[in-house]
């Protein structure tokens, strides 16, 4: 385990070194990341110029929700970018190289990309989170602070699982990958509002199938004092189960790759 962490750190340091070779395009990419999600924010901002609430959540509360969710997403994207761009790795044959090295495949793919440009998005998420903390009308205490930490951990895990699953899908089809956008970009885009606002059926889907709601809607209720029992703070950790089937799918994908070589 320790060796794996060290090796990952080594990968990251090389990525940072490479990135510093292109400071200009790095800054541009950061700005781009910022602009894209800033547009999403603007859309939300103007909706709230007209309406005072959605699904029972006020503007400040929604900002808090969006801030945390966007942080979860950008953390996962920053770390698991190798899985997010896995199709190009397979296409270019770089995955063969990964296979001939005596290390775990997941670790190597994680190490193959580390995208610091995502701090553009992260920055915005942090600002929104800070604003939401102030405007959300929450009395902060230790359980609630812990809840946020759990949300970040659980949410990163959920998105990591999705990136892993979409990478596994590359072994079966490179063409229909676009469909995974629903669960990555789509979730990022529509996760700005608490899942519950979209109706009961979607909430059920996001509880039991892909557990977005466990790291967004439910813990938010606890933060806002709409649920008070202490066990609510641990709900985001339940989302970790999602990584297991995704990893299983990844293993199936590897088997397929080994039998077809493409």
């Amino acid at each position: 385990m320790r060796a794996a962490v060290l090796l990952y750190g080594h990968y990251v340091s090389i990525h940072v070194k490479s990135m510093m070779q292109y400071k200009g395009s790095f800054l541009l990419a950061v700005t781009g990341q910022f602009l894209v999600s800033f547009n999403v924010f603007l859309g939300m901002f103007f909706m709230f110029q007209r309406f005072s609430a959605v699904g029972g959540f006020t503007y400040g509360q929604v900002i808090l929700c969006f801030g945390i969710f966007l942080m979860e997403f950008s953390l996962a994207e920053c770390i698991a970018r190798g899985f997010d761009t896995f199709s190009s790795m397979v296409r270019k044959g770089e995955f063969d190289r990964v296979m001939v090295r005596p290390r775990g495949l997941v670790l190597q793919v994680l190490g193959s990309r580390f995208d610091l440009t995502r701090i553009g998005r992260m920055l915005q998420a942090v600002v929104m989170f800070a604003y939401g903390v102030k405007a959300g009308g929450i009395c902060w205490d230790i359980p609630k602070a812990l809840t946020v930490v759990f949300m970040l951990a659980g949410g990163t895990a959920v998105f990591f699982g999705i990136f892993l699953a979409s990478a596994a899908l590359c072994f079966f089809t490179l063409e229909s990958l676009e469909i995974m956008n629903i669960f990555t970009d789509g979730a990022r885009e529509f996760g700005k509002y608490p899942v519950g606002a979209y109706g009961k059926r979607l909430l059920q889907f996001c509880t039991f199938v892909i557990p977005y709601a466990l790291v967004q809607h439910y813990p938010l209720l606890f933060l806002l004092g709409k649920r008070t029992e202490a066990w609510w703070m641990f709900v985001p950790l339940l989302a970790f189960w999602f990584v297991i089937p995704c990893y299983g799918f990844w293993r199936v994908g590897i088997k397929k790759y080994q039998s077809s070589g493409s």
């Binding site: 309406f51 005072s52 469909i179 629903i182 789509g186 979209y198």
Partner: peptide
Amino acid sequence: IATQFVWGGMEIAMFLAFYREE
């Protein structure tokens, strides 16, 4: 096609949520 369809559905669900409110 499937992606665009789901995307549209979500968008509509979002607008409906605001509609229900006010």
